[in-house]
Simulated assay, not measured.
Amino acid sequence: MDGWNWITVLLIAVLVLSVLQGAKRGAAGSSRQLLALGLEGAGTAISILLAWRVTQWASPLAGDWLVSLGIVIPSGELNVWQQLYYTFITSLRDFSLMRSAILFVIAYSSIKGLLNRIALPLLNIRLGDAMRSPDQASASQWASAAVGGAIGVATGAVRGLLLIAGLMVVGALFPDSPVSAQAANSPLYRQGAERVITPLTGNMLSRLPVFTQSVQTEMDQILKRKYEVLDAHVPEDVASAALEITAGKETDEEKAKALYQWVGTRVKYDWEKVRLYEEKRIWKEQTPEDTFLTRTGVCIDYSRLYAAMARTVGLDVKVVTGLGSDGRGGTGSHAWNEVYLGEKQTWVPLDSTWVSSGGNWFNPADFYKTHIKEA
């Protein structure tokens, strides 16, 4: 029968079980359960709304305060705890989604806890009573069971709508998943989604994929921040080499080009590292000094070594991640650098990994036809 898939059956089962549960508890017990469910839902909604308001107000203030502290990642060698601290505190300062998420969790937990401690006792609601108290409100057990079952319909409807809302979140985040396809073919799901959830939430759920992409982008930036903290200390051998390579170079562009040529021609691409990751999901982490000493690495290793050497000679440089052309009409994950040229007052891109493939990859006019930055 059209529309009778497992999601339809699940929604009907939730309703039937709620009716049976209500009939078993009777009128008074079911009333208490429904009231408790309503109060819990209202408390959660109020806590989310207030926490969101608090977060909107507090996040910019917290960001400004962290900026005012003037935190700078030390150039000396850091232990594990210091690395974690500087990664966390600078990410908290610079990445608004991370800061807002932490503030929201703190605000929500505090407000919800306050409501549970103050509001519920004042209303004399004890959630356990809904499960344990005998039904004393009706003289007839049959009448009480009938009323309890009717109340169970309302309880089941609330539970079903919560389930539909959860499925809508899954559909928004994973539109091509089997769950989304099954939900779209369920008439009960469509009725609840179109008539109740969508009018209540507006376009909030439809914006979830964009929000999720923003979170993923920020997580990638936090990962790069970890590298910045790790790479802030430049070993003496790497620093000495950078100074030797750029000796006699007067401008930022001359220094940047010299390092680009050196890294690109001295480091060999590590195809074995790629194979281990693609076939066995084993990632061989390495520092810029590891790359300098072994003269092997992949694009992120080239880029981190270039950044470490460039900073040693006073250049402002970034490690950029995104997609790079694979030469066959497709793209793959890639990393490169951007360096600031003071004399030209502009950032320019360069890709030392691709030096061995030929061509000029130091600020060519068509660089971003083959490289796509992360959003």
Rank of each mutant, 00 (worst) to 15 (best):
D270M: 06
L323Y: 02
G128L: 09
T265L: 05
C299K: 00
N185E: 14
W57L: 14
I7F: 04
Q141C: 08
L84A: 14
E279K: 09
P74S: 09
G192F: 11
T55P: 00
V179K: 01
V54E: 05
A193D: 03
L15H: 05
T87L: 14
T55L: 05
K112V: 00
Y368H: 14
A154H: 08
G359I: 08
R159L: 11
Q182T: 11
L173G: 08
L127T: 12
G171W: 07
L15S: 05
I89L: 09
G41N: 15
G76N: 10
V54C: 02
I372V: 14
E374H: 10
M98V: 08
G342H: 03
G359A: 05
L37Q: 09
G70L: 04
L20M: 13
Y85H: 06
V348G: 04
N116V: 01
T55H: 07
W65S: 07
K284W: 06
D237F: 02
V105D: 09
S68D: 14
K373R: 15
S356V: 15
S186M: 09
K273H: 08
V313N: 01
Y260D: 03
T346A: 12
G329N: 11
N337L: 00
T370S: 13
G330L: 04
K226V: 10
L161F: 05
N337W: 00
F211I: 15
A157H: 03
D129C: 02
E40T: 09
V348S: 02
M131I: 15
S333M: 10
L162T: 06
A139K: 13
A172M: 10
